[in-house]
Structure formats: C-alpha cells, structure tokens
C-alpha cells in the first residue's frame, strides 16, 4: 500500500514505484506477447502437420495471386468503410456542433446506441434490412424504382453499407470531441472576410478537425478490416477477406502455419493502414 501511495502522489520529482505496473506488464508478457511469439514460430513450419521448418507457408501465401487479391480486397474494404463513414460523420458532427445542449444529448444517445448494441445484433439487423424481401427492397419496389428485388446481401456494396452503421460511432466520437473544442471565432472570421460556407469548411474546419478524423479513421479502418462476423454473414462465402481466410485455415483446412502467416498479414495490413493515416496527419500539418 505504501507503494500505491508513493505513486498516487504523482508529484513531479517523486520516485515512481515501477512495481505497480508489474502485474499488468507480466500479464501482457504471459498472455499477449508470448502468444504472438508462438504464432510467429508456428508460421515457420513448412507443412500443416508441423514437422518440417521452412519458409514454405510464407512463400506459398505471397506467391499466390488469389491470396494477394484477398489482401487487396481487405485493404479496399477498410478504405471504403473509412470513406463512407467520413461522408456521413462530418455532416452529423457539424450539425451536432450547432445544436442546442438538449439536442446534443439526444444526438449523443443516438450515436452511442449502435456502439452499445452487440456487433452480432447490428449485423443481424442488416440482414433483415438488405434481404431480398427486406426493408430496402420493399421501399424501392413500393416507390416503383425497381421491379425486381436487388441482391444486396453477399455484395461488397451491402457490406460497406452495413459497416458504415456498425463503425460510424468510432469515427464520430473523436470527431465530435475535436469539433466541439474548435474556436468559433475562426469560422466567424472566415465568413466575415467573405468566404462561402464551402470554402470555410474546406479551408478552416477541415484542417482544424483533421487530428480527430485521423483518430476516427484509424479505429474504423482497424475495426472494419477485422470485422469477421459482419464480413462472413453479410459478405457470404463468395467474398473472402483475411479474417474469414484465417478462420477457414484453422477450423476447416487445419493448416495452422498457413493461418499464422495470414494472421501476421492481417496484422501488417492494419498496421500499414494506421501508419499511412499517421503519415497523412503529419503531412497535412506541415503543408
């Protein structure tokens, strides 16, 4: 307990008791770092029976055009999800900023509601909406826009629409935070100097809120590329992304080394996206 207090002071210059970080640190070493070491080790087995060492699993994965397309499709899905959530989240954040405190509370509730509803349930909701006799098709047929129901399930378009709802709160929360902290004087000044609302948005609001967008885009990208349930249930068997590939290799094909390679590929894909967004943030600040 004395250790707790020594740090609890948090007074600069006080000696920090590192032992307090040890329980969580050791837990991470044992249950987080060690499993990844094992995963890396398994990826260097050349065969699914794990008898022979070699780089075969890696070369087979990256040498095959099919698997390269799976990587590309996964990246593309993440980019589409980021674009779609951006297109809807920015206007909502702008409206939120101008809303009364009471309206803001209602909006926060609307934004948090899907976040607090299980991902599986949100996916289920989109099956109901996008199915052949679902809400979207009923509306389109009712309006006379189409005579035959559209096939929205098991298409990339349907998956992106569903992911937009599933991931949008992740984009909105950092965006709202930064949007609310923005100085109104800068916008008023831009307007007073004769800039149109569009110009003010692109020249003032957008650059100032970019850090919030980067934070949101990072979460959306990481989450949508690994959204196994949404991808496999809405995308169906025809659309294959890295998470489904990993699951199949483990539970159907029983090729653990290959699954390990696919897992690291997923890890690299997400990290590449995060780094690209971070780079974009630095680039935007300097230019």
């Amino acid at each position: 307990m004395a250790g707790v207090a020594a740090v609890a002071g948090g007074v600069p210059g006080n000696k920090v008791d590192w032992r307090l970080a040890a329980p969580l640190g050791l837990t991470y070493l044992a249950f987080f770092a060690a499993p990844f070491v094992i995963l890396l080790g398994v990826s260097f087995y050349a065969d699914s029976e794990q008898t022979r060492l070699g780089l075969d699993s890696w070369t087979k994965f990256y040498g095959d055009a099919f698997y390269r397309k799976v990587i590309f499709d996964t990246l593309k899905l993440g980019v589409f999800a980021v674009l779609a959530t951006t297109l809807l989240a920015y206007p909502l954040a702008l409206v939120f900023r101008g809303a009364s405190p009471r309206a803001q509370r209602v909006l926060i509730f609307i934004i948090l509601m899907p976040l607090l509803t299980s991902v599986v349930i949100r996916t289920f909701a989109w099956i109901v909406i996008l199915a052949r006799e679902g809400v979207v098709n009923q509306t389109l047929i009712g309006l006379g826009l189409t005579s035959t129901p559209l096939n929205l399930l098991q298409t990339e378009l349907g998956l992106v629409i569903a992911l937009t709802q599933i991931e949008m709160p992740l984009m909105l929360l950092p965006l709202l935070t930064i949007m609310n902290g923005m100085d109104q004087n800068l916008i008023d000044a831009s307007r007073a100097l004769g800039a149109s609302k569009w110009r003010t948005f692109f020249k003032v609001t957008l650059p100032l809120t970019l850090p919030g967008w980067i934070a949101g885009a990072t979460l959306v990208f990481a989450s949508s590329t690994t959204a196994f349930i949404s991808q496999s249930v809405i995308g169906g068997a025809r659309l294959v992304y890295l998470p489904a590939l990993i699951y199949q290799q483990v539970t159907v094909v029983y090729n653990w080394p290959f699954a390990a390679v696919a897992s690291f590929t997923l890890l690299f894909t997400v990290l590449a996206g995060i780094m690209a967004l971070g780079w974009l943030g630095r680039f935007a600040r300097t230019s």
Partner: peptide
Amino acid sequence: TYNWIIGLLAGLAVLILIGPVLIV
C-alpha cells in the same frame, strides 16, 4: 446548397445509426 447537403447527409447518418436498432 451547403445547408441542404450537410442537412441531408446528417439526416441520413441519424437514420442509418438508429434505424437498424429500431427495426430489430
């Protein structure tokens, strides 16, 4: 047009966020 487009997209965002939950 700015007011219209922002308003429409924000409305669509609210509909997409809350609609599926209400339907379920």
